[in-house]
């Protein structure tokens, strides 16, 4: 299991700004190790955010997303104290969900 994400969700006016920092290698599959063997690709493929059970953001990623990915987006209709859940899945079947409270 991968390390937890760091999630900040803050209400600004009528929109919630969400910032997420995920811990992931995001290996492209094009790099080689010291012995010349290709390091297999290992990267996050899907990311989604839900608020009260509704998806407010979703994305598909390729290996061109930087290591330990950072993501920031905004969504409408959240209020203080609500929970925001972020889920990612990677190409090796690993998966992680974390949540944060809107402040």
């Amino acid at each position: 299991m991968a390390d937890p994400m760091k999630i900040r969700a803050a209400l600004q006016g009528d929109v919630v700004e969400v910032r997420v920092l995920m811990a992931h290698e995001m290996e492209t599959g094009t790099r080689k190790d010291a012995s010349g063997k290709v390091i297999p690709a290992h990267f996050i493929q899907t990311v989604s955010a839900t608020h009260n059970g509704n998806t407010v953001f979703s994305a598909h990623w390729g290996p061109a997303i930087a290591k330990n990915p950072f993501l920031q987006f905004k969504f409408k209709g959240g209020s203080k104290g609500d929970k925001v859940q972020i889920t990612w899945t990677d190409n090796q079947g690993d998966k992680r969900t974390d949540e944060a409270t809107i402040s």
Partner: peptide, 19 residues
């Protein structure tokens, strides 16, 4: 690098880091 689905509730700006 990425494709994001923008719903009615999603708002800009959108930030990420690419290689």
């Amino acid at each position: 690098a990425a494709v994001a689905k923008i719903g009615k509730r999603t708002a800009f700006p959108l930030s990420l880091r690419v290689k």
